[in-house]
Amino acid sequence: MTTINTIQKKKGIEKITAITAYDALFGRIFDSYVDFILVGDSLSQSFGGHKDTLAIGIDEMIYHTKAVCKGANQSLIVGDMSFGSYQNETMAIKNAVRFYKETQAGAIKLEGGSARAKIIQSIIQEGIAVMGHIGLMPQFARSEGGYKIKGKDDQSITQLKEDALALQEAGVFAIVLEGIKSEVATEITQMLTIPTIGIGSGANCDGQILVWSDAFGFFTEFKPKFVRRYLEGEQILKQALQAYIDDVKAQRFPSQEESY
């Protein structure tokens, strides 16, 4: 069974692989193939149909994390803390403890750098493993006027490095680097002793993660630059669905062997 220690020992030795999942079915399919499964608040968009990740709440995140945990028992499960669930230390600890008590997740993930370091440290002191997340942070996209790549100027680069070091000092076991210029993500990866997990941040991070519906072609409204599609899932599923419909209409299904 993969643990946070397993993840940390891979730094500089072997690339870490991760994918998102939101239910027991896909948790079971992805289990043991990837090092960790993130129950991401991206489910607000790919599962719930919302325009951003802000609509999802802590109850829903816990529900989906519990479901994934029922399907997966080898890969490390990491659950996202939803927008508004860790605005202060008291709230953050309460919701993080609830996450651990109600699910079998091995860790939780929070967005934010230096400004959230004290909150994250307090959660870790309660015995809860935390994965950090800096760079392009989807929970901040609306307030920033959209999804903006980070690390384009000296001020941004300095802040990213300060954020990464602050989170490492706070005790996170790994950090997601999202939407960061690849050369900056490389520098951050080299300066940290903990693993970095990239998404849209180049190939030199210690690992990579993608949203499953992006990677496998089930979310087709748009395709971010950093996504590689490994399957045209929507197209294949629609073809299979049409074959089923055709068989029903032509009375080819069910056959005698498929009937009681």
Rank of each mutant, 00 (worst) to 15 (best):
T2P: 05
T2D: 06
T3C: 04
T3V: 07
N5H: 10
T6S: 12
I7V: 12
I7Y: 05
Q8M: 15
K9N: 14
K9A: 12
K9F: 04
K10I: 06
K11Y: 05
G12L: 06
I16K: 01
T17P: 01
Y22M: 03
L25G: 08
L25E: 13
G27V: 05
G27I: 08
Y33D: 13
V39W: 00
V39F: 02
V39D: 00
Q45S: 03
H50D: 09
D52R: 04
T53F: 12
A55Q: 13
I62E: 10
I62G: 10
I62P: 13
H64C: 11
A72Q: 02
N73W: 11
V78P: 00
G79N: 01
D80A: 00
F83N: 07
G84I: 06
S85Y: 11
I93E: 08
T103A: 09
T103V: 05
A105C: 15
G106Y: 04
K109S: 07
S114K: 15
S114Y: 14
A115S: 15
I119L: 12
Q125A: 15
E126W: 03
E126F: 03
H133V: 08
I134Y: 07
L136W: 02
L136I: 04
P138Q: 07
P138T: 08
P138F: 09
E144S: 08
G145E: 07
Y147P: 02
K148N: 09
G151I: 05
D153L: 12
Q155D: 13
S156H: 10
I157S: 14
I157V: 15
T158C: 13
K161W: 07
E162F: 09
Q168H: 13
Q168V: 13
E169S: 14
A170P: 04
G171Y: 07
I175G: 01
L177E: 09
E178I: 00
E187M: 13
E187V: 10
I188W: 06
T193A: 07
P195F: 01
G198W: 00
G200W: 01
A203G: 04
D206G: 05
G207E: 03
G207F: 04
Q208N: 10
G217V: 08
G217C: 04
G217K: 02
G217N: 02
T220F: 02
E221Y: 12
R228M: 03
R228N: 10
Y230A: 11
E232Q: 14
E232H: 13
I236A: 15
K238D: 12
L241V: 14
I245S: 08
D246V: 09
F253D: 09
S255W: 00
S255T: 15
